[in-house]
Each structure stands twice: as structure tokens, then as C-alpha cells.
């Protein structure tokens, strides 16, 4: 088994009296695609928001094994998680910079690196070579991801003007431009047609193969989940009810119950 990348231990997140995530533990591996599935309201997005630091969980630990050491994500601010731990994410309701161009979206994603290269923009203000080189490298990285997501010919268009499926891919490209170790995707296939969905599968498999990073995936589209994930974690009411390979999970009675309801209420559920 590959060494774990992300260890979530006894994570609990409450909103008022409601347990959105309840004593949840699981691991996600390097070079693996881990899918988190579950019915609506099972706490998947809340889990993502805890991992990426947008919510602070009440209990539990989230550890990321980084070459620089083990990082306790629950103690870092959201932007520090992205910057220092290398966790990138996409959003269920796409969050691009709509009035900026596609390329600009990808350049902004490399903000940290460019800031360092430009000495907080000072070098850039003075027009030093050092900054121009860094910017050229950033454009090349952007071009690479534009090519891989088939968005190159839209590079100078406003991001908000792209069709929906393109916006989804752009969000992934943007996340990849941060050079993450862990990529969290919140329902990347939502709203895609079957062809786009198949392309997305291929893109995600390529990322896993070429970049060797971990992918964490929330998904409703079972063809995506079953087609590409290495491991599946199933949540219901904030609790883990099953975990394993796609085949194992598919046959798990608890999972079937969670999705289809108890046998005696199957008609209503």
C-alpha cells in the first residue's frame, strides 16, 4: 500500500446542535484517487471545507504528510493550507475570477511563487529581469495546463464567458497551477454531459499518473466514482458507513441502505 498522504482522525464539525461530520476517520493515499460519496447532506462538502481550512472543526485532527514534515491542517488558516501544505481545491459552485481572462486566472494561481520571485512585486515594478523570467515561467506552466484541459484557444477570453463545462476544467487547471500535493475536487462532473464527463475521467487519471499527487473527490456521478477511484469512503449523516475499493463498496448492504432507504420504507425513500 502507498504511504498515506492525508490522515483524518476523529473529525467532528457541528453547526449548532447538528453534527455535519461526526467522528470521521479515514486516510487518502499519495498517487491515489479517493472518492467521498454519500447522499445529499451527508457532510461531504463540510468535510472538504474542514480539510481546506474554510471551517475549523470542533474536534479531531487532519494531518498532511508533507516532505517538510507532518502538518496539522486544523491549525492552519485556509490560505496557509493552500500555500504551505499544498492543498488545492475546486468548488461545487464554480468560483473563477469571472471578469479576468482565462490566462489571468491561471497566473493568479501562481501568486505565491511570483510574489517571491518579484520580491513582493518590487522587482517587477523596477522591471528587473528576475521577475520577467519568473513571469515567463508562470505563463509556460499556464500554457501546459491550458493544453491539457483543451482551453488554449480561450486563453485571452473572459473566464466568466466560457461555457459551463469549460469553466469546470479551468477550475481544475487553476488548482493544478498551484502545484498541489493534494487536489480536492468538489463534484467536478456535476452538470457535464457524458462526453465531457468521460474527458474529465481521463484528465483526472492523467493527473494521478503524471503528477503522482493525491486526489480527493466528492462525486454523485457513480460512473465517475466507479470508473476512476482507487478507494471509496461512504458518508451518511456525517458518519463513515463504509470504506474500500469501488467493488467492495458497491456490494455493501449499509451503502445500499443509505442510498435506497431501509427496506420497509423503500417505497417512500
Amino acid at each position: 500500500m502507498t504511504p498515506s498522504l492525508l490522515d483524518v482522525e476523529h473529525l467532528t464539525m457541528r453547526f449548532g446542535g447538528l453534527f455535519a461530520v461526526n467522528d470521521l476517520s479515514f486516510t487518502a493515499g499519495n498517487g491515489e484517487i479517493t472518492a467521498v460519496i454519500g447522499p445529499n447532506g451527508a457532510g461531504k462538502t463540510t468535510l472538504f471545507n474542514c480539510i481546506t481550512g474554510f471551517y475549523k472543526p470542533q474536534e479531531g485532527r487532519i494531518a498532511l504528510n508533507h516532505p517538510d514534515g507532518r502538518m496539522a491542517l486544523e491549525r492552519l488558516d485556509d490560505h496557509a493550507i493552500a500555500r504551505r501544505a499544498g492543498v488545492a481545491r475546486t468548488f461545487q459552485n464554480i468560483r473563477l475570477f469571472p471578469r479576468m481572462s482565462v490566462l489571468e486566472n491561471l497566473i493568479v494561481a501562481q501568486h505565491t511563487r511570483l510574489m517571491r520571485a518579484s520580491m513582493f512585486s518590487l522587482a517587477g515594478l523596477l522591471g528587473l529581469r528576475r521577475y520577467r523570467r519568473a513571469e515567463a515561467a508562470a505563463v509556460e506552466r499556464a500554457r501546459h495546463w491550458l493544453d491539457r484541459t483543451a482551453l488554449t484557444r480561450f486563453a485571452d477570453d473572459e473566464a466568466g464567458s466560457l461555457p459551463y463545462g469549460h469553466q469546470r476544467r479551468l477550475e481544475i487547471a487553476r488548482a493544478m497551477c498551484t502545484e498541489p500535493r493534494l487536489l480536492c475536487l468538489d463534484e467536478p462532473a456535476a452538470g457535464l454531459n457524458p462526453r465531457e464527463s468521460a474527458e474529465l475521467n481521463r484528465l483526472l487519471l492523467d493527473i494521478r499518473a503524471d503528477e503522482g499527487i493525491g486526489l480527493l473527490l466528492i462525486e454523485h456521478d457513480m460512473s465517475v466514482v466507479m470508473g476512476i477511484s482507487d478507494r471509496v469512503v461512504v458518508l451518511d449523516y456525517g458518519k463513515k458507513i463504509a470504506e474500500g475499493t469501488p467493488a467492495e463498496v458497491r456490494g455493501d448492504p449499509a451503502v445500499i441502505r443509505a442510498y435506497l432507504g431501509e427496506p420497509d420504507e423503500a417505497e417512500t425513500g
Binding site: 485556509d78 468560483r95 521577475y131
Partner: peptide
């Protein structure tokens, strides 16, 4: 005009567009 083309300037505009997305990219708002 100059700073708009530098990382800080782009981060300003990105922040105007979507602060949460900025945070997810490691930008300290």
C-alpha cells in the same frame, strides 16, 4: 498601469472577483 500587471495587482483584482477562491489558491486576503 504597471502594478496591475504584477502579482500584487492581479491579486487585487482576483480578490475583488472572489475572495474565497483567492484563499483557496494560497493568497492571504
Amino acid at each position: 498601469l504597471r502594478i496591475r500587471r504584477l502579482p500584487v495587482g492581479r491579486a487585487w483584482e482576483a480578490l475583488r472577483e472572489d475572495e474565497i477562491a483567492c484563499r483557496s489558491l494560497g493568497i492571504n486576503p
